[in-house]
Nucleic acid binder design. Structure first.
Lengths: 148, 148
DNA sequence: CGGCATCCGAGTAGATACTG
DNA sequence: CAGTATCTACTCGGATGCCG
């Protein structure tokens, strides 16, 4: 195991924080779970990239984002931008010039989220190779049973 | 603005980290984005809750998870567990007893991820009310233009 | 030209019933 | 108990076309 970053002590600390967090949540009705609801947008695979790029480039226009977030379609980008604006992560500014111009930039709220998000994505970029390796390994362990 | 947690200094620091992270990514082909690919599973709204609960309870069985992750279906839970195992976050142990028993627990890899994830979800639980408030506010600002 | 809305197909989620 | 199978419904995503 080359992953010796997690000590038992760490696990206990994490569990304590989790207990506290879940404690707060369980007060409310289970139907509305803030984590599930808010993260559904905020941790969406497209949202993440949009937010990260906006954390990097202070201001971006629609097509600039589209170019950076490889593979996103007009529709999805448009939707995500609208939702991310609605949730307060970014601000949309329209300049009614002749060729219309729209700028997107993070709000302070968005910046504070991106900061946290970045810690997670750094972890991911560091260990993504291991994840992919895990996937490969997992597929192989099926064995020759499944002939057909 | 009650959200004065983000200083200009912080933003610059964040941008630097982002530059470094994107710098590593841009080397590869754009088609495969580790963030998008790995996070698509790891930051999925169901995955998050499964992982967090497994961070709290050292070991959980299928139906226990199902009970805790409110609203998840057999199918989706089964799928997610399989994928999360395949990516190395958790370990599935089958006990071939009379009523079959299956235990799920985080791997060390999973624990290290949950640790990072928790920082993000703590932020989310702290500010989820504001996000919801933002959403409400946003909906109202439509104005009476859209009559039909 | 840049941004958005519409359409339609494909994949995914959810409910239920069933099996080892 | 721990899933799988199946079916439906729906959301999502991609291409296209429209409008400012």
């Amino acid at each position: 195991m080359e992953m010796e970053t997690v000590t038992e002590n760490q696990k206990v600390k994490t569990a304590k924080k989790l207990k506290k967090m879940f404690g707060h949540m369980d007060r409310r009705q289970m139907e509305y779970c803030p984590i599930r609801d808010v993260m559904a947008l905020a941790s969406d695979k497209w949202s993440i990239l949009i937010l990260l790029y906006l954390g990097y480039y202070p201001v971006l226009r629609f097509n600039a984002i589209k170019k950076k977030v490889y593979g996103i379609s007009n529709k999805v980008l448009s939707e995500r931008l609208k939702m991310l604006e609605s949730d307060g992560y970014l601000k949309r500014t329209l300049f009614p010039e002749v060729p219309i111009r729209v700028e997107y930039r993070l709000t302070d709220f968005g910046h504070s989220y991106v900061e946290k998000l970045l810690d997670l994505t750094e972890w991911v970029t560091t260990y993504s190779d291991q994840v992919v390796a895990n996937r490969m390994e997992y597929g192989k362990s099926e064995g020759p049973c499944s002939g057909s």
